[in-house]
Simulated assay, not measured.
Amino acid sequence: SGQNGCSGAACAYFKVTTSDFNAGNYTYKCMGDGSQFNSWEGPVYFPANGSVQLQCFWGYPGKQVWVVLNGKAYERSIW
């Protein structure tokens, strides 16, 4: 929380956790409720096993969110 216009518990950055992932540098897009948001696209290093906080800041509970890495969409979650 703490970003302009967003002060609720649902306001947070995305965090991607990897397990047996192909480690390396990836570009990414932040997706929420069917559209890309935030302009940051990396590249960012993703480890084989670990977590990375992205520059995807979201604050709309009940909406579907996901991350696209190098053009491939990964697991979608309800925020």
Score class of each variant (00 low, 15 high):
residue 4 N to P: 15
residue 39 S to I: 02
residue 1 S to T: 14
residue 72 K to V: 15
residue 79 W to M: 10
residue 36 Q to L: 10
residue 30 C to K: 11
residue 10 A to Y: 10
residue 33 D to T: 05
residue 60 Y to Q: 01
residue 40 W to M: 01
residue 14 F to C: 03
residue 66 W to N: 03
residue 21 F to N: 13
residue 39 S to A: 04
residue 63 K to E: 00
residue 35 S to C: 03
residue 44 V to L: 04
residue 62 G to D: 00
residue 69 L to V: 03
residue 8 G to V: 12
residue 31 M to S: 08
residue 3 Q to R: 12
residue 74 Y to I: 02
residue 40 W to H: 12
residue 39 S to M: 07
residue 2 G to R: 00
residue 7 S to F: 00
residue 1 S to W: 02
residue 24 G to H: 09
residue 36 Q to M: 02
residue 30 C to N: 07
residue 56 C to R: 06
residue 15 K to S: 14
residue 14 F to V: 03
residue 58 W to A: 03
residue 69 L to D: 10
residue 49 N to Y: 01
residue 64 Q to L: 01
residue 35 S to H: 13
residue 31 M to F: 02
residue 20 D to F: 03
residue 63 K to H: 05
residue 45 Y to H: 06
residue 22 N to D: 14
residue 70 N to L: 12
residue 28 Y to P: 15
residue 33 D to H: 10
residue 33 D to M: 09
residue 47 P to V: 03
residue 45 Y to G: 08
residue 11 C to G: 08
residue 10 A to P: 04
residue 22 N to K: 05
residue 40 W to L: 01
residue 60 Y to P: 11
residue 33 D to A: 15
residue 12 A to K: 11
residue 26 Y to R: 13
residue 54 L to I: 09
residue 78 I to D: 05
residue 29 K to Y: 11
residue 78 I to P: 03
residue 7 S to A: 12
residue 49 N to R: 00
residue 50 G to H: 08
residue 43 P to E: 07
residue 42 G to P: 04
residue 52 V to T: 10
residue 50 G to N: 09
residue 31 M to P: 08
residue 56 C to Q: 06
residue 48 A to P: 00
residue 50 G to K: 06
residue 57 F to T: 04
residue 57 F to G: 09
residue 73 A to R: 14
residue 51 S to W: 02
residue 67 V to K: 00
residue 14 F to N: 03
